[in-house]
Amino acid sequence: MRTLTSLTPTPNAKSPVSLRAVVERITRDEVVHVARLARLDLADDEIDQFTQQLGAILEHAADVEALEVADVEPTSHPLPLRNVVRADEVSESLERDEVMACAPDVQDGQFRVPPVLGERT
């Protein structure tokens, strides 16, 4: 049974953010790595700015990080989600031409992209 004490963040969790703590939170190299995962190309000054800002935000989240909550189940969604199916009947769907007209490059009714194979990841 979880008690109220488990709700209490560690005493230093909301203490003023020290520069040292921020630096330790996330490094410049990690920011570069995460940007690559997110398919973003950051300029040098953006990398510096995000390193500092993401560090400060993560420092703020230290109260959550510090929680002892091993016995609490996670909630990913406010509703108990179940798969929803409909009757297998033909119904209206989106106009194919209208959908394809939104795309930047189309050929023979298909989305056209630059080469995929052989690319660096």
Binding site: D41, C102, A103, P104, F111, P114, P115, V116, E119, R120
Partner: peptide, 18 residues
Amino acid sequence: GIRYGLRVDGATTAEMTT
């Protein structure tokens, strides 16, 4: 950059998306 909205060209799909 594939199905809708902006596309900025790139040599590969990954470069285009980035």
